[in-house]
């Protein structure tokens, strides 16, 4: 059943990368929902599997080596993973769009930025070339780039402007869901704020749901309605921003936020936690956080804890989660 107000629902998604040397268990049976108009933050260390989750939704995992071994992704009740390629293409860039981690390499170096934006528009809306170009110019203006730069090539733009172009391209067809994969990580701190604020105002104007992948807790507290904490390919905790910041239930979340997690924290970056994530090619039998967890007990290394809902909409994957 499609729950009321859920735009996207991921169930039991598992992604593996099969390379010559090993199998990497990148995403391990995760579940996640995105409501209409909501901004959900995906936080986690590097290699946790955030990009893999976003790419699965859009069906643009590199296959091979990637393989989706189980799960369903429901978008407005449609199972995306079983959708024929033709239908999926109508969704990509149109209903669901993505902003990539690195703006420096996300644009085709030998096509003009205007062409690249207009191309998306022409792909999805049956408009003339002139009309598509006009809309591409509007999009450029919307992200704060003079339309006179329509015919410029990516190398003529700075990193921040490239990311604006990428955002213009992603929003060109008014998507319902925007997957923003660390949209500001590659940018200068001053540009970061600008780009995020711009995204925020566009989001409000266009009523787009956003999945915001980030390392930055400040960004999460400022822009997100709910949060999912990703650790070693699992979602170890999810809930509203208040749930996560004020009542964290998982030792990993606690660790991330340091000793005193607060919504108005001045500490913006994730706190490094001692130890490393388990080797994704050889995942432990029990809880994945076990090795680094200050509260670990015998049972933690024997079998993995199930996800339990400690409050409505606030779920934690830990034996020590306070029961409802």
């Amino acid at each position: 059943m499609e729950e009321q107000g859920n735009l996207l629902e991921i169930r039991d998604l598992a992604v593996e990368y099969h390379t010559d040397e090993a199998t990497i268990y990148a995403v391990n049976h995760i579940g996640l929902t995105v409501k209409k108009g909501e901004t959900i933050g995906l936080v986690g260390e590097t290699g946790a599997g955030k990009t893999s989750i976003a790419r699965s939704i859009l069906g643009i995992l590199p296959m091979p080596p990637a393989k989706i071994v189980s799960g369903e992704i429901l978008y407005r009740g449609n199972e995306l993973l079983r959708l024929p390629e033709r239908e999926m293409r109508k969704i990509r860039g149109n209903k669901i769009a993505m902003i990539f981690q690195d703006p420096m390499t996300a644009l085709n170096p030998i096509e003009t930025v205007g062409f690249q934006i207009a191309e998306t528009i022409r792909q999805h809306d049956s408009v003339s070339q002139v009309e598509a170009n006009r809309r591409a110019c509007d999009m450029l203006e919307m992200v704060g780039i003079a339309m006179g730069r329509f015919g410029d090539f990516p190398h003529q733009f700075s990193g921040g402007m490239k990311q604006r172009v990428v955002i213009a391209m992603a929003l060109a067809c008014n998507p319902e869901l925007l997957l923003a994969d660390e949209p500001t990580t590659a940018l200068d701190v001053t540009i970061q704020a600008q780009v995020l604020e711009m995204m925020q105002s566009l989001r409000e104007r266009l009523e787009t749901s956003v999945m915001l992948i980030t390392h930055d807790l400040g960004v999460v507290s400022e822009f997100c309605d709910s949060v999912a904490v990703v650790y070693a390919g699992e979602i170890v905790e999810r809930g509203t921003v208040e749930d996560i910041f004020d009542r964290p239930g998982h030792p990993y979340t606690l660790g991330l936020f340091g000793s005193l997690p607060r919504l108005d924290a001045t500490e913006r970056r994730l706190k490094p936690i001692k130890g490393r994530m388990p080797d994704p090619t050889n995942v432990p039998e029990g809880c994945r956080f076990c090795d680094r967890c200050p509260r670990a007990e015998d049972r933690c290394s024997k079998s993995p804890p199930a996800e339990s809902e400690i409050a409505p909409g606030h779920a934690v994957k830990c034996f020590f989660a306070p029961q409802r």
Binding site: R89, I91, N108, P109
Partner: peptide
């Protein structure tokens, strides 16, 4: 940018 092109549909 090839992934971008695919992601555009």
């Amino acid at each position: 940018y090839i992934v971008t092109a695919k992601a555009k549909g």
